[in-house]
Nucleic acid binder design. Structure first.
Length: 494
RNA sequence: GAGGACGUAGGCGACCGGUCAAGCCGCCAACCUUUCAAGUUGGAAAUUGCGGGUUCAAAUCCCGUCGUCCUUACCA
């Protein structure tokens, strides 16, 4: 039997980092086993579900490269089927009508749950549980009712989780869960089970916050006379304070689209995500999607929750530093031809792209990207820090001006002079330039570093970057001489 | 309140009874030297939450304890 797994987000916000990892693991497991990866949008909560969220989630998945193998299922389309199933359970006496008036949730829902739980009520004490069919039918003509599953009094549900092992729960711990709301709306646990059955799901891989739901769902499977699928629950991803990582509290860092928009490579972020809650148990950490799918197993999934580490007060650590490092690592080590397709749109959106980069200047462009990528962290850096390589219109970094130009007043004279010298250079390549610049330094009695780093600011606007001689060679004689003579920066520093 | 899960350096995490407890990120330093947030090399950092027990031997097994998290809805 081929494995069929599904990722089933509810569209009540953008694609959360934890959901993204759930999607990843589902995807990896499907591909590893040669099975299918399916997508189901659980939009049954009409009050909170939005189309915008659905779009955002789809965008996030697309960016990560997880295209479903079959048509996307929208759970809300199956409501009639869900109701039919409940009707059947009702007729079979496996469910019953509960005429207790609905109590509207007010204030803190969680607190209310805890309060009620303290009373330690008998879960089977519902007065309508054993109403005769006749009485129930009669009452149903005039009164509203929810439909609950009739959970047996004695016994327990159990399942062998692929990650957490054997889970058991006494029936007495589980209430007669509501299947259908009094307004006829099917509830989550029912909908999930019905859809998973219809989609022939073989493995349910989801967050461990569903561990107790699983017991309820197994009860539904049993009532339906169906065999439950295998379950694999994933450890949670926590915030730095080990609390819940929430959209409300933590904002953008948890959204997938943030990373796409911040210039992350999907490959890098996937790789980072894979290492959160799963381990290959080898020392290799950099893995392509193919490598990940090859070695991914459910046994490698951890039981302990992982912390997504970031510091909202530190600009450089706005997200997990390993994620940033991973992205930088990909940018500077991936095959240049694989990187270029990502650089192009980035430059385009910054209006720095020129068609020649794909044609006559292709070699120059490749060499340049190859040179500057060594110190970049995100795709954004190509259009920000790397701007001077593609445009005359670039900014000068203030600290760089002070550090590299401020200490040696003579630079204001030397740099234009250097331009004069460079203009006469025929062989404008690294080694020869080195000789020329060295000689220039000697005759002026200054150090190579002072001069080159001063030039760095005028030529790139930055205080740091690749080897200056390589930069000079890459920029070419015209631009170099023009910028070295420019007075703009000197006026700025005044 | 109840049920459950988890607990190895700041973070991710190896080691699932047997040498000085891997590796990665981060941090620090040196080197390179024309800078650096790159590269190379090195370093600091964990009495494996705590306390018992089993054993010749425990991070690894058992019990307790503390802490954290999840669940406990006519939300998903």
């Amino acid at each position: 039997m081929t494995t069929r797994v599904r990722f089933a987000p509810s569209p009540t916000g953008y694609l959360h980092i934890g959901s993204a990892r759930t999607a990843l693991f589902n995807y990896l497991y499907a591909k590893h086993t040669g099975g299918k990866f399916l997508l189901r949008i659980e939009d049954t909560d009409m009050a909170r579900s939005t189309e915008e969220s659905t779009r955002s989630i789809l965008d996030g998945l697309k960016w990560l490269g997880f295209e479903p193998d079959e048509e996307i299922i929208y759970q809300s389309n199956n409501a009639d089927k869900h109701r039919a199933v409940v009707q059947k359970l009702l007729e079979e006496g496996k469910a019953y009508r509960d005429f207790t008036p609905k109590v509207e949730a007010s204030g803190d829902v969680k607190a209310g749950i805890v309060e009620r739980a303290k009373e330690n009520l008998d879960m089977r004490a519902n007065p309508f549980r054993d109403l005769s069919n006749e009485e129930s039918d009669e009452k149903a003509k005039t009164e509203l009712f929810a439909i609950r599953l009739k959970v047996a009094t004695i016994g327990k549900t159990s399942f062998d989780d692929e990650v957490y092992g054997l889970n058991e729960r006494d029936y007495s711990e589980t209430e007669d869960l509501v299947l259908l709301r009094s307004d006829g709306h099917p509830l989550y646990n029912l909908a999930v089970v019905c859809d998973d059955i219809e989609m022939c799901i073989t493995h349910v891989i989801r967050g461990q916050d569903h561990l107790t739901n699983t017991h309820k769902q197994i009860l539904i499977y049993e009532a339906l006379g169906k065999l439950p699928p295998k379950f694999a629950h994933l450890p949670l991803i926590l915030a730095p304070n080990k609390g819940k990582l929430s959209k409300r509290k933590h904002g953008e860092v948890v959204s997938m689209t943030t990373y796409r928009d911040a210039g992350f490579l999907a490959a890098a972020f996937r790789n980072f995500l894979a290492l959160l809650g799963w381990s290959s148990k080898t020392e290799q950490e950099l893995m392509s999607l193919q490598e990940l799918t090859d070695i991914f197993t459910l046994e490698g999934i951890h039981r302990s929750n992982a912390v997504f580490n970031f510091d909202a007060n530190d600009e450089r650590r706005w997200t997990d530093d390993k994620a940033i490092w991973m992205n930088a690592e990909y940018i500077r080590t991936m095959p240049i031809e694989d990187l270029l397709p990502f650089v192009k749109p980035e430059l385009k959106s910054a209006k720095l792209w020129r068609e020649e980069y794909d044609e006559d200047d292709k070699t120059w462009f490749e060499n340049t990207i190859n040179l500057i990528r060594q110190r970049f962290f995100t795709l954004k850096d190509f259009s920000n820090q790397g701007r001077a390589f593609f445009s005359e219109d670039f900014d000068f970094d203030k600290p760089a001006i002070e550090k590299n130009l401020g200490k040696e007043p003579n630079l204001k004279i030397w740099l234009p002079e250097l331009a004069e010298v460079l203009e006469t250079v025929e062989d404008f390549t690294h080694d020869n330039l080195q000789e020329v610049v060295k000689q220039f330094c000697e005759s002026n009695g200054t150090k190579l570093g002072v001069l080159l780093n001063g030039a760095r600011v005028l030529l790139t606007g930055q205080g740091v970057g690749p080897s200056m001689l390589a930069v000079i060679e890459t920029l070419g004689k015209d631009k170099v001489c023009l910028r070295l003579k420019s007075q703009v920066v000197w006026n700025l520093s005044r």
